[in-house]
Amino acid sequence: MRGVWEAPSPTRMPAARQIIGRDGPMLGAWRLFAGLVGGHALASGMVAAMGSMLPLVGMPRGEAVSLAILLALIAYAPTCLAMLASGRPWRDGLALFATAGALIALASMF
C-alpha cells in the first residue's frame, strides 16, 4: 500500500516547520502573497486590458469583458499554483506583478 504518504514528504516534519515549509516564513508568505494578490492584479489587469483593447478590433465591449472575465478566472488558480511551486519565487513573483502592472498600464492607455 505504497501511496503518496509513504514518500518522503513535508508531513513528516514537525508542525511548525510544515506550516512554513522548507522555505522559511518570509518566502512562504511571499509565495502566498504573490499568488493571491499578484494573481488578483493579473486577473484584474487581464479583464481591463482585454476589455479595453478587443473593442479596437470590433468586438462589442460587453462581450470583450465577458470573455476576459472567463479567461482571467481560469488563469487565477494556476497562477497561484505556479507561485506556490516556483523554484525562483522572488523572481517569478516580481515578474507576475510586473506583468499585471503592464496590463493595467496598457488598459489605462486605451
Binding site: H40, A43, V47, S52, V65, L73, I74, A107
Partner: peptide, 20 residues
C-alpha cells in the same frame, strides 16, 4: 469556478469597470 464567475463584479470590480 462558476461561483467566482457569478461574483466577478465583486471580485474584479476595477478590471470590469475600467473598459467602461
Amino acid at each position: 469556478f462558476s461561483g467566482l464567475l457569478i461574483f466577478a463584479f465583486v471580485y474584479l470590480p476595477w478590471g470590469i469597470a475600467e473598459p467602461f
